[in-house]
Design a protein around this nucleic acid. Structure first.
Lengths: 152, 152, 152, 152
DNA sequence: TTCGTCGATAC
DNA sequence: GTATCGACGAA
């Protein structure tokens, strides 16, 4: 009941619409995607080559990957994540003691001081340490405002 | 300014709340997760062992994986997916011709017949072929109702 | 106990070798990689756009992905994989019966016939079916030669 | 050329060896794997529940994941990785200056001192800083021995 | 042992 | 649905 092979395909479009579907269109999409994937693969290979070259020059590839990852994060995010991690590490007893400047940052944040109250000059290493402590405590306080951890 | 080492932690809770965070609670969560992950790893290893044993008995592991994947899908989904794929393969010219029974299923679906109109007995191979063709065409028609592919 | 800030850096290379490491070289590698990753991301976005467009034209994206995957495999691999899968599906009772032509391919393979002994013309649907059965049985026999499944 | 349906299956083993393959054995493997995967899934769900509960108590899940990851690494690996990263961050100009104690650790490592030459008491924050600098420089020197970066 | 591919999982 | 991560198999 109906001519064989390809269904109700009465229109004589050459090779188009085969099987009732927009065959040409499908082919077009598939071709475009395959072409783009080829390009993408080429670039992925290039990246791999650069890593190989770097390795040949004595660089540690996993560390480079980590470095690239950190660069993708905005400095602010990175600091916040790091502070939170420090906080958890300390809670777990997996970190050393705080440095003096870190401790001072913590205290100052508790006392309501703001980031610009950093008492150290920017080229003093303690500047960063104070900032880390301040950030850590600020993050903690913000978290505690939003949630009520057991015991709060 | 403020006693050193651990912040404003005046309450003497033993090891709790260290760093201002609910340390005991954190430790508890971490322990539970690590314990569960250990169990999970054990089971993953067991699975690996079974595959290894199967391989030693001459079975092809990738094919077994594929088989397991297919079994996860409901038969209905599998058929539908397969029909759609057949449709696309035909449109791309990547498949052989339809079998006679498939073609008949296609025509019958176009003619508005329903799944139970399958003219073949269930133990006839053409039963399945007709069903595939019918399902394929039914899927196609449903798709065309929902969308207007260019040219429709 | 040595001049401060940057170690044994006696050579006056400007900004190079900072920290004893080939800093300029590292920066170069990192820059190249980041540039390539940007390009790669752009292409990935283009691919996504094509899928979105195809979807808007009524195509089923998961099926297209499957289609693309199949096209990546060489036809020979695909057939072999499919035959092996059929074999396992039959063994699990998850497949319908063999078609007549498939069965004949199985028997012919068992009888030592070769692929070119296909008794059907290439435009006959049974050509493919015979080939599938032949391939399946050939694969099975090859497997049995290599291993000794229990009972062999 | 032999009665149809199931090949050269002359032995009457009930449902076994169907299709020439050790069907029962295959089914057994598949069952075992599916059972194990079910268990594995259950545990994965439990883990997810714990994370959800932790989140409900104000903990940051990504940070917890990071913490768990760090705990999986041996402390030694972690230090080494961290030192290498610091080294690269400094080279890229993405880190602050070294602390005094770090710098001293760097110098001491260059001077051939060993890890136990740490001049700070273990409860002094500078103990850790010195160790980081020492480790970093030690790692660097080891790397330079193995490779010849351009310019060495 | 290292690399590349593949599947799983988290966002 | 996508991108990252870890695991597995191959060389």
């Amino acid at each position: 009941m109906a001519p064989r092979k390809k269904k109700q395909d009465d229109a004589p479009q050459p090779s188009s619409n085969a099987g009732g579907i927009a065959a040409d269109q499908l082919r077009s999409f598939v071709d475009r995607i395959e072409r783009l994937e080829t390009e993408k693969k080429g670039i992925a290979d290039d990246i791999k080559d650069v890593f190989t070259e770097a390795k040949g020059n004595g660089f540690d590839v996993p560390t480079m990957r980590l470095l690239l990852k950190l660069r993708k994060q905005k400095p602010h995010e990175r600091e916040e994540q790091q502070s939170m991690l420090d906080l958890y590490l300390h809670a777990m007893g997996m970190a050393g003691e705080y440095t003096i400047a870190e401790q001072q940052g913590i205290d100052d944040a508790s006392a309501g001081k703001v980031a610009t109250d950093n008492p150290f000059l920017t080229d003093d290493p303690r500047h960063t340490q104070w900032a880390t402590g301040w950030q850590m405590q600020t993050t903690l306080l913000a978290t505690q405002d939003e949630n009520q951890p057991a015991g709060a």
